[in-house]
Amino acid sequence: MEQMQTVRESVKRTETAALEISGLRARVEGKEILKGIDLVVRQGEVHALMGPNGSGKSTLANVLMGRPGYELTAGQVLFRGQDITGLSADRRAQLGLFLAFQYPTEIPGVSVVNFLRSAYNAVKSEQISALAFRKRLKEKMNMLGVEDAMVNRYVNQGFSGGEKKKNEVLQLAVLEPEIAILDETDSGLDIDSLKAVATGIQQLIGPNLGVLLITHYQRMLNYITPDHIHVMMDGRIVSSGGPELAHELEKKGYEGLRKELGEG
């Protein structure tokens, strides 16, 4: 753990910022949900984003990934210095952005392995053979403890909550993005699955990956120590700090923090 931290620290200084969000405001169905977000996530960093239900965390994740139906009213999102707000989701993914969904979607009739191979080819601009891809996939599966049967099933169809989240992490591992947004990848998991998923993510974290980890739970942060913690309330980041902020929150709750901020 200690060692990994130092590696990341050293990289931070040499790498340029990867994802820069400034003054971001967005509306959904005419209602303003994001009310001015400023956040920078660099390759090699882990940022945790916490906040009460409905505060806008998933909205931010979706806006960053370019989901249709979200209206940007102000601000910008730079990725490697380029404004990506006008780009389609597939272009963003090709540039190196990834979103692990809070509620992954089913793709009936399309197997995980075929889906992932298409995605791999699109993101890497390759035409990898089915055999070569199987081999690559197998390595990642072994690392994450994913069963063979899962990748032959249709994407998320009939998957348990835990299997869906594992599948998101498998995709993350195969596609090797530079910045990944993980939206509650730890929710809906039993203790063993949480451990498997968290250690999987932990292994992927390194100098080439920046993570925005959306979570409600300290238990995830026991496995993955974030460099920064941000608290979102009502569409704004109201507080940022180091790992200690999570413990503070655990004690006070969001109500406590809200009061403190209100007073301060």
Binding site: R67, P68, D90
Partner: peptide
């Protein structure tokens, strides 16, 4: 959207 978020064009 889910599929496109994995880099696969429309």
């Amino acid at each position: 959207f889910y599929i496109r978020s994995r880099g696969i064009p429309e």
